[in-house]
Design a binder for these strands. Structure first.
Lengths: 249, 249
DNA sequence: TGCGTTTCTCAGGAAAATCACAGACTCTAG
DNA sequence: CTAGAGTCTGTGATTTTCCTGAGAAACGCA
């Protein structure tokens, strides 16, 4: 399958299949709260979601739903993640899979799996991360063109989702993982006010229980690196949230 | 569902469903005074309202009413807000939800709620805020087009509900949160006299206990920023209220 | 294991926004 | 023309929101 992108009037970039129909994603996890969280977030991306709670359900659903990508928890009640993967591959040889795994779970098994073009994230994950990885997988699973899609641009600020490189006015900028995800979220929603709650929900992992002012803190970090001495692009809307927009304006 | 807008002869912009029928909203709260307040305000928007006082009622009503959006109090007598959300989602996977939550309960419980594109407001809320958020949710839940819907225009004055940007004659103007809401209310009712009581009821939270002349005060603030040196757009109708209209006229 | 980096909490302080109060001003009815 | 009702706005107190330095804890990597 190959994909294309359209940019809606809102400035949101959407992934679509060649025939214009929405991308289909199958979510497999035994915890209902996880499948619901993911379904909600992925649906918001404009994708069509189906979910399953165990391996057999996953195979069955995959057979008739024919998803373009699968999110698969490695820990399922009825069968091992690898077994599910094997059967899945028999049905859909080319579908890319995003594995969900516990933080401390085996590294070697997963490492081998991602060699085939698949990818994984560790629990607890942030929604931004899952969405980004899925977008990457889906993009790459199609005819391998459209590399440019992985680059976000706002004014003279540039962020490459593949290489994780960020630069402003041509000058490279080093960001930490969290800073990068925050900036990506801002840049995927340029000129739109994002509340601290929204940011927290998307950029931090779902089990984050800390103070909401981490958002303020990381905005502060970003400003030091992005806006340092330059015309500021990150703006505070007191009582509402933050937004990013090109300097000229 | 996708939505479209029509502009009535009075200048009021209304959200409608594709087939021209009114938008349907379900309001869920156990306090009767709240559901009545909301129902009245939302009906005034031209929407069709149903209300429920507890979780089971909400699910039942949702099933047959099939609302386009739901306003859901997090504190219900019979079940937890998240439980209601889960069941609601099973019935209507794509319906956006606006949560009502107590001011101090925000930090802990809200986690994840805005992730799927849902939104929330804290009690005590202002009706303008609820209406604005609902409009946003409904707009975004449809086919994601129509950016123009988020921009209010009166004469050379422009207000963008997404970016919270306001400009007159192309020149950007910074407004505080309250000023912004007041101006939005005026601009959503151009050429119509709005009494101080109406303004107080819509723009300030329902439990506001202060002096009624905050309205005068904020009108004064707005004039300094909007009308400063220019042909005035905000007019006083002595003994009646205020109205906004294009300068030319 | 140990060292540098990253993430996050805490708390002080700065800045901004909200609002009460009161006096000045303006309009209009009589 | 004048008094009173209605409206406008300066001043400043209070509250809310935001920013950021300092340091503790967790992490990653050699």
């Amino acid at each position: 399958m190959s994909t294309m992108t359209t940019t809606s009037p809102q400035g949101r970039t959407e992934l679509l299949r060649p025939d214009g129909s929405p991308v289909r994603v199958l979510v497999v996890d035994d915890e209902l709260s996880i499948t619901e969280l993911l379904s909600m977030a992925l649906r918001y991306e404009g994708w069509q979601i189906r979910s399953a709670g165990d391996g057999t359900g996953a195979i069955q659903t995959a057979r008739e739903f024919r998803p373009d990508a699968v999110v698969l928890d490695m820990m399922l009640p009825d069968m091992d993640g690898l077994t599910v993967l094997g059967r899945l591959r028999r049905e859909l040889p080319d579908v890319p899979v995003l594995f969900l795994t516990a933080k401390d779970a085996v590294e070697d098994r997963i490492a081998g799996l991602t060699a085939g073009g698949d990818d994984y994230v560790t629990k607890p994950f942030s929604l931004e991360e899952v969405v980004a990885r899925l977008r990457g997988l889906i993009r790459r699973s199609g005819a391998a063109d459209r590399r440019s899609d992985s680059v976000l641009v706002v004014g003279d600020l540039t962020l490459d989702e593949d290489s994780h490189e960020v630069s402003r006015a041509g000058e490279g900028i080093h960001l930490t993982a969290t800073e990068f995800e925050l900036l990506r979220f801002l840049m995927r929603n340029p000129r739109r006010v994002l509340s601290k709650a929204q940011i927290l929900d998307r950029v931090w992992s779902y089990d984050f229980g800390g103070q909401a002012n981490v958002v303020e803190l990381y905005i502060s970090y970003l400003r030091r690196k992005i806006d340092a001495g330059r015309e500021p692009m990150i703006h505070t809307r007191r009582g509402a949230g933050y937004l990013i927009k090109p300097a000229a304006s």
